[in-house]
């Protein structure tokens, strides 16, 4: 029962069909994705339903999310970055909600699967690449040629810049995925110590206090990590988008 990997298992609920030989199934992961969409929709639409000048709790939360993301985007990209506001907001809220739901026991963490975080990171990567080329044309490639570099090491720098640019989606997605995965495994391992020790009678019960305290502390830490990783994912998105808008810097 204490398999720490079991929580990442994807269970098929029903099969929808096949695309290119791949089975498309509605799974617990899909259900949680739609739960995330529903929660965010409820928060944002429910929060803006009252339309009062002095906001209630829901409205405060909705406005807080809005202003938090818009301030983050504006401070790192500037006013012209606001055209990406819906994308950045959707990414932040999706990742944050997925991370937070995952802390609740018996739930599934959508962002603990590399394919999901990779898809989100690639969305950002392709947006940066395509919009950067569309907006700046070939000047976009100045991104790989920093100013003030001596000509004899420039080829090396350009190669490093290109590699670092191409590895962005990897680091962007693995950071979120690995944090979620590792945190949830650690939580599960410590929690299973509690149950394991508890089965040894009175002495075990006394010994189980330590891992229980650990689990409690880790849950608080995971709450922080859930927010922090969503924020890191968002701020990196903003920094990458800044490259698409201002490749010269």
């Amino acid at each position: 029962m204490a398999d720490p990997i079991h929580q990442f298992q994807i269970n098929k609920i029903f099969t929808v069909g096949h695309i290119g030989g791949h089975e498309i199934a509605f799974t617990n992961s899909s259900a949680f994705m739609f739960a995330i969409v529903a929660i965010i929709t409820l928060l944002m639409l429910g929060g803006s339903a009252a339309r009062s000048v002095i906001p209630g709790r829901m409205q405060s939360l909705a406005e807080l999310s809005y202003e938090f993301v818009s301030d983050t985007l504006r401070s790192s990209v500037g006013e012209e970055g606001m055209k990406f506001f819906p994308l950045v907001f959707t990414l932040f809220m999706f990742v944050l909600t997925a991370n937070l739901i995952g802390i609740i026991p018996y739930t599934f963490t959508v962002t603990s699967h590399i394919i999901v975080t990779l898809a989100l990171a690639l969305t950002v990567f392709l947006t940066v690449l395509l919009y950067g080329l569309y907006k700046n044309g070939l000047k976009f490639f100045k991104l790989f040629v920093p100013h003030g570099i001596p000509i004899y090491i420039l080829p090396l720098i350009v190669v490093i810049e290109v590699i670092s640019f191409l590895s962005r989606p990897v680091s962007h997605s693995v950071r979120l995925f690995a944090n979620m995965l590792a945190g949830h495994i650690t939580l599960k391992v410590f929690a299973s110590f509690v149950a394991g020790l508890g089965s040894f009678g009175a002495l075990g019960w006394a010994g189980a206090v330590l891992p229980l305290a650990m689990t409690t502390a880790l849950t608080a830490l995971e709450l922080l990590v859930a927010f922090l990783q969503a924020y890191v994912f968002t701020i990196l998105t903003c920094i990458y988008l800044n490259d698409a808008l201002h490749p010269g810097h």
Binding site: I10, K12, V16, I19, G20, H22, E23, I24, A25, F26, T27, S29, S30, M33, F34, I36, V37, I40, T41, M44, L45, S48, A62, P86, L87, F89, T90, M93, F94, V110, H113, I115, V116, A119, L120, T123
Partner: peptide, 24 residues
Amino acid sequence: TFASQLFWLAIAFVALYVIVSRIA
């Protein structure tokens, strides 16, 4: 599981994007 996850993620994410950008 990749294909299913990508398929539903695309739908959920696009739906959320539309709701967020058009209404919310």
